[in-house]
């Protein structure tokens, strides 16, 4: 029995259940799992396809004492939830793992075909005998990762050694095109993107910080920020409600974009917003369970950036 499984099993002394991953028998990649007994945890895995942010389940398990396997970036979501009183720190055991950088499974499958086994060793990702450099298929957020060490952690369960982080990606594809757009083109871009929104709210359901759930303003009829119509203008407003409410809270886990069935590049907005917040307030979401998020506090010397 490996050390990772052993650590999870030991956690059961203190918790009711543990959130982690098992390998999907069909596709051979990791899928989220909830272990209720130590025996179930025998199947627990941690590899470079464990890209999901399991923290989304934490606020929904408020009544239970929960163990959760968390990568560095996931730990930021936990810290942010604790800072926002949405998660009781004393009822969570964070099993920190050191992440090697996660593979964008969708991207890999697009390269090699769906369901193909992925092997990841020695800086190369191999599938069906073909190999590519890891950087090619890494998740966008893993490029230039700053969160190898979990910010909040109760037990460490091994994982990868700290290798040289893949450098931040040069804007490519949609990012490159977006960066070059004029204001008018951007406006048109978002109008086109949001015209495809089917208002399924998968983005919100996948987001670990969207714990308002049923009360969410992007869906509520009262007071009527946006109607429920499948309509570019209404979806524009609804989506911006979520983006605005993520200000200073989004840790950039990319779950919303991954969940979007029509592929709206939500991270373009969130990344920009996170960058602005870091520039203005020197804050990254999930800085720590005790740190006040920037929009819930102020500094009378804020005018360093001057009156607009």
């Amino acid at each position: 029995m490996n050390e990772f499984v052993q650590t999870i099993k030991q956690t059961f002394k203190e918790v009711d259940l543990v959130l982690g991953w098992v390998r999907s028998p069909a596709a051979g990649v990791a899928v989220p799992a909830c272990f209720h007994t130590p025996a179930q945890a025998d199947d627990a895995v941690f590899d470079s396809t464990c890209m999901h942010n399991l923290v989304v389940h934490l606020p929904r398990l408020a009544g239970k004492k929960v163990g959760i396997v968390a990568k560095g970036c996931d730990a930021r979501s936990i810290a942010q939830l604790v800072a926002e009183h949405a998660v009781d720190r004393s009822r969570v055991i964070v099993i920190g793992v050191h992440c090697p950088g996660m593979i964008d499974v969708k991207k890999a499958w697009r390269c090699f075909g769906f369901g193909k086994r992925i092997s990841d060793a020695g800086g190369r990702v191999a599938m069906e005998g073909k190999t590519v450099a890891r950087e090619e298929v890494l998740l966008q957020k893993c490029r230039g990762c700053r969160d190898w060490e979990p910010v909040i952690c109760d037990v460490t369960a091994g994982g990868a050694t700290k290798a040289a982080t893949a450098p931040p990606a040069e804007p490519a594809g949609i990012r490159k095109r977006f960066a070059a757009m004029s204001p008018a083109e951007r406006r048109q871009f978002w109008q086109d993107q949001f015209s495809r929104c089917i208002r399924c709210y998968a983005c919100r359901e996948a987001c670990p910080l969207c714990f308002c759930r049923d009360q969410c303003a992007m869906q509520a009829r009262d007071p009527g920020w946006a109607t429920a119509a499948i309509d570019a203008s209404q979806s524009w407003m609804a989506q911006l409600i979520r983006i605005s409410h993520m200000a200073g809270r989004c840790s950039g886990c990319e779950e919303c974009e991954r969940a979007c069935p029509v592929g709206i590049p939500l991270m373009l907005l969130l990344e920009e917003q996170n960058a602005v917040i870091e520039e203005l307030f020197g804050y990254r979401a999930g800085a720590g369970p005790e740190v006040k998020p920037p929009l819930l506090t102020f500094n009378i010397k804020d005018d360093a950036w001057g009156e607009s």
Partner: peptide, 29 residues
């Protein structure tokens, strides 16, 4: 107004991302 300043400055800087000219928005005292 200190809270407003933070919220509105962030908004102002997000407008170009949305394709709204920041010249259309102004906050002041």
């Amino acid at each position: 107004n200190y809270f407003a300043r933070r919220r509105l400055e962030l908004l102002k800087r997000m407008l170009p991302v949305l394709g709204i000219d920041p010249g259309r928005f102004h906050y002041t005292w």
